[in-house]
Design a protein around this nucleic acid. Structure first.
Lengths: 135, 135
DNA sequence: CATTTTCTTCTACAACTGTAGAAGTAGACA
DNA sequence: TGTCTACTTCTACAGTTGTAGAAGAAAATG
C-alpha cells in the first residue's frame, strides 16, 4: 500500500504538481522547461504514466486535463528514502546521516538548519534517556 | 567524475563485493542467494554490467574471474544520496534528516546511534558559533 | 581418458525510462 | 465559417534493468 517508485523524470513532474496542484500539462511544462527543455509531449507522457501508477489523478476541465496528486510528497519521500536506506546504507539511518554530515556539500543554510534540528532532537533524546527504547 | 548510478540489483552485488573483495561470481551468489534466489547467470550479468560501468574491475585467477571494487562504497553512497537529495528533497539536507527522524521506522539501535551522532555534531555546531558560515 | 562439475560467454526478453514526433480534435478569433 | 491554436491521444524507439537459459570450455575426479 505504500510503494511509489518514482523515476527522475517522474520526480520532476510530481514536484511541479505538488506545488501547483491542480496542474495542467502546460503548467508542468512551464515549471520544468527551464531546467529540462522538455517537449510538451514528454510532459504529457510522464503525466500519463504517473496516472497509470496511481500517483496522480486526472480530471477534465473543458478540454484540458488537470492533474492532482494522489500520493503525497511525504509518502513518496518516505518510500524513496527507505529504499535508499535499505540498498545503500544497510538500513542504518545513522550511517546515512553521518554521510550527509561528512561528505555532502552542504550550504551554509543547510548546515545551520541541520544544526538547529539536531540540537532540538538531541535534547529530546536526552530527556527520554533511560526510557524503553524499542520500536 | 563521480557519478556511479547503481540500480537495486547492482547495489546488492556491490555490497557483496565491497565486503568480501576480491570476490568471484560464486562468492557473490552465495552472499546473495538467500535473499534473492538469483540464478548464477543473473549474478554474472550484473557483474558484467558493473565492470562495463567502471564500478568493478575484473581479473582472471585460474579459470575464475575475480572482481574488485573500483568505486568505493563511499563514492556510491555519496552519489546516490546526493541524487535523492536533489530529486526528492529539493536539495535540503535538513529536510531529509527531518524526515528520517519523523517518519522512518528506526530501530532502538538506530535511534541511539543517531542521538549520539547528533549530540556530538550539535556540539561542534555551537563551538563554531559565529564563525564564517559559507561553503 | 571419460565423465561430471564449474566457469564462462552469448543471447533473450519483458518491463521501465527518457524523450518526442505525428496526427487528430475542440475552442478561439477574424 | 474557415483557420489558427492549444490540447489530446498514439506510436516509437533507444537505453536500462531484472532475470535467466543454453551452449561451450576448462578443471577435477574416478
Amino acid at each position: 500500500m505504500g510503494s511509489v517508485r518514482l523515476s527522475d523524470a517522474e520526480w520532476r513532474v510530481m514536484n511541479e504538481v505538488w506545488s501547483r496542484s491542480p496542474a495542467s500539462a502546460r503548467d508542468v511544462l512551464e515549471g520544468v522547461a527551464e531546467e529540462t527543455g522538455w517537449a510538451y509531449s514528454t510532459v504529457k507522457t510522464v503525466l500519463a504514466r504517473l496516472v497509470e501508477k496511481g500517483a496522480l489523478s486526472s480530471r477534465l476541465r473543458a478540454n484540458t486535463t488537470l492533474y492532482e496528486p494522489v500520493v503525497t510528497r511525504e509518502q513518496a519521500r518516505r518510500s524513496a528514502l527507505s529504499s535508499l536506506l535499505e540498498s545503500a546504507f544497510g538500513g542504518r539511518a545513522s550511517s546515512l546521516v553521518q554521510h550527509l554530515l561528512d561528505e555532502e556539500r552542504l550550504s551554509g543554510r543547510d548546515r545551520s538548519e541541520l544544526t538547529q534540528l539536531l540540537q532540538s532532537e538531541a535534547a529530546k533524546g536526552s530527556e527520554r534517556e533511560g526510557a524503553s527504547n524499542d520500536a
